[in-house]
């Protein structure tokens, strides 16, 4: 599995996303620029300029026509993927930590940071699927997180719920229509930030990563912890692979401590765990800084990781990856 190194960013990567077809990778970094890449060979397709600060988040609509980005310049911007035309800018009082489209692409949510008198919130906009149309400035929904700020959030299946992970290690379920908090449970260790939340393909369950060195698989309906993946390093990201029942976890020593530690000790590896058996299967080395995000190809044929070291590494899985099976899995497969 030889990775393709995407070295177009000048600063630490913050998020990496595949589009629905898996042929394009979008990456954002602290260097203010959004890049689009061909996933199969790592060639750069183009860039999106305009943001005035570090970028924290990116998402692409399910039909791959629109791209949403958010960052430290307190804006969410909507772009046309094809032409890099800026379609809309929404301004906020604080920076944007996360954006995500609903499964049908008709809604967009953003998570705002808590700072100097502004509480953290989750905002939702309705999106007009027509590229030419003027997008609304009116918020369809605004959820204020007065307990503990949200760090990550996303839409469940059918955009029924909004699930958010919080700074205090808890996960909440909100009604996506009314914004009402349905319930909140402490999933990770108290005061250990939830750093990532990624969905299974059908969005009936999801995985959360946390600074408490563990990742957890939760059900969407009742936030029940199905599986726990325990590691020895703070985690920044976790992803669920389709096709094979694996999860990929990424993290490493906190970025501020990295200069004092060797790459070997930093644990800057992507870790593969078996989703069902919760056992570690393998690790992929390469980054020389913590992994900030891991994204999986929607068809499960590869994954990309963005690191604090400023590189995106795109991996295409080899045959042995698909061939590997536990004894019991083989039994089931042969039935």
């Amino acid at each position: 599995m030889r990775p393709i190194l995407l070295s177009g960013h000048e600063r630490a990567l913050t998020q990496v996303k595949y589009n629905a077809d898996g042929d394009i990778i979008f990456s954002v970094s602290k260097d203010h620029v959004v890049c689009a890449w061909f996933s199969h060979n790592g060639e750069r397709l183009g860039t999106y300029h305009g943001h005035q600060g570090a970028l924290w988040t990116v998402d692409v609509s399910p039909n791959s026509e629109m791209l949403a980005t958010g960052g430290a310049d307190n804006t969410i911007r909507l772009w046309e993927v094809k032409t890099s035309k800026l379609l809309k800018t929404w301004d906020f009082a604080t920076s944007i930590k996360r954006v995500e489209f609903s499964p049908d692409g008709r809604q967009l949510l953003g998570v705002t940071e808590k700072r100097s008198g502004h509480l953290g919130s989750i905002v939702v906009y309705d999106i007009d699927l027509d590229i030419e149309a003027e997008q609304t400035s009116e918020q369809a929904l605004r959820i204020v997180c007065d307990e503990s700020k949200a760090t990550v959030a996303g839409f469940s299946y059918g955009a029924r719920y909004i699930i958010a992970g919080h700074e205090d290690g808890s996960v909440s379920q909100y009604d996506a229509k009314t914004g009402e908090l349905i319930f909140n449970t402490q999933v990770h260790e108290p005061d250990m930030m939830v750093t990532d939340l990624q969905w299974s393909p059908d969005r009936t369950y999801f995985i959360t990563a946390s600074k408490d060195k563990s990742a957890k698989l939760l059900t969407t309906n009742d936030l029940e912890v199905l599986k726990t993946y325990q590691t020895d390093t703070p985690l920044n990201s976790a992803a669920i692979t389709p096709v094979k029942d694996y999860v990929i976890l990424g993290g490493g020593q906190a970025a501020m401590d990295v200069t004092t530690t060797s790459a070997r000790q930093g644990k800057f590896e992507a870790r593969f765990y078996h989703k069902i058996f919760m056992e570690e299967i393998g690790r992929v080395r390469g980054h020389f800084g913590p992994l900030n995000y891991v994204a999986v190809h929607p068809k499960g044929t590869g994954y990309a990781s963005g690191g604090e070291d400023g590189y995106v590494r795109v991996h295409h899985f080899d045959k042995p990856y698909f061939d590997f099976m536990y004894e019991v899995e083989r039994e089931q497969a042969n039935l």
Binding site: D202, T204, D245
Partner: peptide, 24 residues
């Protein structure tokens, strides 16, 4: 593995009942 499969089937049924189709 059995537990997981059972749960997945249950989820698939639920989605079907709700009439939610996975767009992708």
């Amino acid at each position: 593995l059995e537990e997981w499969k059972a749960w997945r089937e249950q989820m698939a049924e639920m989605l079907e009942e709700e009439g939610i189709v996975d767009e992708k």
